[in-house]
């Protein structure tokens, strides 16, 4: 029997489509989480009522932020899930090496992020529709999303990028966890330290990390930041996973 020389791209392609099918559990949890998020969002994020110089108003604020945040957490969780033994071993049921497995995972995470970003924004529209019909409101104010398609697309794009960042983060945490369970404790400690450690300027480390992404108002710079951090996190995961043995 002659041996075949597989090409990396070819195997990555096969693994990618295989994983999209094999990880179907994640679609289920995505839908569940988004429905849950819609449910939570139903209460609104705030309300105000009073008299504005003779005009009585009753204002309710709603936001689809929770849906996006839930979707980001879903990304984090799904990515961490695919680093667990059971899922990693799934790779090794068929043709793979660590590089091809990781590459395929990267593409899977990209795909999941786009799916997550798209559905989170769309389910935001669903939320609006549900609120529109379930409240006896006179003034329902939301116009821009529909009237400005470029904003709509930007929204989906940036939501996808957030989900992707969380995916890659989850992937790295998952990989670290596979190496040593204590690393999770260390990360938690680092996180808490970051919450309370003040840096010059009055805010703490965590808020700085947060604002690094969230207050970036240039789409281009935001994209650069996201890519830089994602590549960094993913590279760390690559290095870790290359040292791991399978099926012990």
């Amino acid at each position: 029997m002659s041996i075949t020389k597989p090409s990396l791209t070819n195997i990555v392609k096969k693994q990618y489509s295989y994983k999209l099918r094999a990880y179907r559990q994640v679609y289920n949890s995505l839908i569940a989480l988004q429905l849950l998020a819609i449910f939570f969002s139903f209460n609104g994020v705030g309300s105000m009522s009073g008299n504005w110089g003779g005009i009585h108003l009753n204002i309710n604020y709603y936001s689809a932020d929770i849906i996006i945040i839930f979707t980001m957490l879903w990304g984090l969780n799904s990515a961490a899930l695919i680093t667990t033994k059971a899922y990693r071993f799934d790779d090794f049921a068929f043709v793979t090496n660590r590089l091809s497995g990781n590459m395929a995972n990267l593409y899977v995470m990209l795909t999941l992020s786009v799916i997550g970003g798209l559905t989170s924004i769309l389910s935001g529209v669903l939320l609006k529709l549900l609120i529109y019909y379930s409240t006896d409101v006179q003034i329902f104010n939301d116009t821009r999303l529909m009237s400005e398609p470029n904003l709509f697309v930007t929204s989906i794009l940036s939501a996808s990028m957030y989900v992707f960042l969380f995916c890659v983060l989850g992937y790295m945490i998952g990989m670290l966890f596979q190496v040593n369970k204590m690393i999770l404790v260390a990360l938690a400690a680092l996180f808490i330290w970051g919450l309370f450690k003040d840096v010059s300027g009055g805010s703490n480390v965590m808020v700085n990390v947060f604002t690094f992404f969230v207050s970036e108002s240039s789409l281009f710079l935001f994209f650069i930041k996201m890519m830089f951090c994602s590549i960094l996190l993913f590279s760390i995961s690559l290095v870790i996973s290359n040292r791991m043995e399978v099926r012990q």
Binding site: K5, R21, D90
Partner: peptide, 23 residues
Amino acid sequence: FNNLTVSANMIFIDDGMILPASL
């Protein structure tokens, strides 16, 4: 170890074989 050619031309069957639970 970590070799794609070996992986493509070899199959390893044991009783601890883990196959995707979702398929």
